[in-house]
Design a protein around this nucleic acid. Structure first.
Lengths: 343, 343
DNA sequence: AAATTTAATGCAACCGATTGCATAATAAAA
DNA sequence: TTTTATTATGCAATCGGTTGCATTAAATTT
């Protein structure tokens, strides 16, 4: 195994001091241009690579950003992460990614690992059942910037990056009402989470404005996954007074539900219209194509990392920033377009 | 900002040497049990956290595994990563994940970053157009273990973790033939990649065994994404002699294709049967439900990381291991079950 | 009691880059 | 020519664990 080249090797060969080599490599203004060229050439020649650990140790910073997500393998999260990775990579930062698998307990463990790994900043989208901020306190104490995205924790002075879930919920529901629906069942996730609570708010607001009473029997809290979609269909089938529309807070769940409903002979959109959420690719490959809310996942990831890096570099101070809200958009497709019954 | 606690602080308070503290914290056998208890208690009390950089610097190892994937946000890859993260987390390893976005150029840059980050090991699934092994040589030179998974590079003595793509391709095709189909169009990705080349081999083998001539016009190389699926449908519609079956090397593409075919009035599975690949959740929520090959993505991720860690810890030597093949499985659903035309 | 073995701890160098401060070299001003 | 300002470089301490080797203390053997 070839010996690792250090700045001392370069210094020796050039008969200059390691300090100068270090400064030259970091493009320090006090170093003569010619020296820089010389050092860089020699570094190249010897196949030098900087030792990040020595550097981190000395600088007390890691150029690493921690990310905790509920799960890696959901359309939204993997897309957010794709956006994050893109920017981090461009900016010379590393990402350490971990998943809580929707469990606060794992989230706490992950936060601790991140803390011990001395990430320069932490980006978090919380688990279903997270009800404490405790495990994030160490970061605040050490002034490590903490940004929440998508599923946020409120009342803690941390900036957050979100879409306007209330507005989105309102638009989805209002659209269904405009299509002539009034018995709108809302399928959602854990209401402790802002994303679902806010969508519900929007839903209720739309009902209110249209003088449709809100019934809590028309609000179902589920896991919002594929299985939940199937179960929802079963339950609907068994209802004496079926709803005429569904607003489901996740496309995958919505699609599974539609699929099951169709198998039961219930027509979408004529018997029941459906609006999903996220604009998952799956939304446009099923029949009927799913009306949904476009969620700017990639952009969210990009902006989250960009904001974090700007803050770390001092280009932008996040302390005063409370929230960054991204634009979401209703995309109307077939699943909510009512076609008159033929014949 | 509270000062960071070091082993020196612990040593001072306990009136012992930092060396003993270090050894006690690492559960070194030469240290007295009572001392260990004492040290650990004090560490806990002071809120000590180990400085990984100091440790890495000295130990010349990082407890970090690099992962390069084509994209983060595909069902298969995000699921593989979920499995990887799970095991890495359990074993106290960190993951640095980066995506090549199907470009060899980015893959090279990422490999370099990984190298400079001094990952202890590297896991790679190569981009569409990667045709060189050059960028991985530095790892071999430095004896940094390199494992390929899913999309592998051959002839380089690196272990790989794969499914038997040939067998899977054979089974998919043979199933279609058993259903009475013989004009089977194969939609695949870049044939430079083992996964697609092998599936094609299996496809050809099944044809051969059933004495169906292979026609190269029935082999289409595409991007295998949603858009490609739509285009495939268009092209099929325009064919004078349409195929009676499709074997598509990705579910998402297959589903998009089916959706488009249906819109054109072409019935699946009666006019054209379809078999996909991956067992993406989307496969079971469309109508007709998609016949596909189950791909053990989570397991692949878990085994990849597990193997890497075992190798690093010396528990298992990978030098002699050429390949680990995981079990895949044909899942028959409606898209390939031919129902007699009603009426 | 002396010699030898075993167990537990400490010393000090080391990993490799960074940086405040001092200094040398050169240029500009007096 | 001397003084002052400017530019470039070097010295040496520092970041915080880790580890080979030495040493001390305690236990065991002769």
């Amino acid at each position: 195994m070839a010996k690792e080249i250090t700045i001392y090797d370069i210094a020796n060969q050039l008969q200059i001091s390691p300090a100068t080599v270090s400064r030259a490599l970091n493009n320090h203004p006090a170093i003569n241009e010619k020296t820089k060229v010389l050092v860089n050439a020699k570094a190249e020649e010897l196949g030098y690579r900087s030792n990040k650990f020595a550097s981190n140790l000395r600088k007390q910073s890691t150029s690493t950003i921690g990310v905790i997500v509920p799960r890696l393998n959901s359309y939204i999260m993997s897309t957010v992460l794709a956006g994050m990775e893109k920017i981090a990579n461009e900016e010379g930062f590393n990402l350490i990614i971990s998943q809580s698998l929707e469990s606060q307990k794992k989230e706490i463990a992950n936060a601790q690992t991140m803390f011990n790994s001395r990430v320069d900043g932490l980006l978090v989208s919380v688990a279903f059942d997270t009800d404490s901020f405790e495990h994030f306190q160490p970061f605040l104490k050490k002034k490590i910037p903490l940004i929440f995205f998508d599923r946020i924790l409120e009342n803690n002075n941390c900036p957050s990056i979100v879409i306007d879930n209330t507005k989105a919920g309102y638009e989805a529901t209002n659209h269904l009402i405009q299509q002539g629906r009034s018995n709108i069942l809302h399928i959602t996730g854990n209401l402790q989470r802002n994303v679902y609570a806010d969508r519900l708010k929007g839903y209720q607001q739309a009902l209110l404005e249209n003088e449709i009473p809100f019934q809590k029997e028309f609000l179902w809290e589920t896991a919002l996954n594929l299985e939940a979609g199937k179960e929802v269909a079963q339950r609907i089938k068994a209802m004496p007074n079926r709803p005429d529309a569904l607003f489901i807070a996740s496309d995958l769940c919505a699609v599974a539900c539609i699929s099951a409903l169709k198998e039961m002979g219930i027509d979408v959109p004529n018997d029941i219209s459906v609006v999903g959420f996220n604009n998952d690719p799956v939304a446009q490959v099923i029949a009927p194509k799913l009306t949904t809310i476009h969620y700017p996942a990639k952009e969210m990831g990009e902006i989250a990392v960009k904001s974090m890096i700007n803050h770390l570099k001092g280009t932008m101070n996040l302390d005063k920033t409370n929230a960054i809200t991204l634009r979401s958009e209703l995309i109307v497709r077939e699943s909510s377009r009512i076609i008159e019954h033929s014949a």
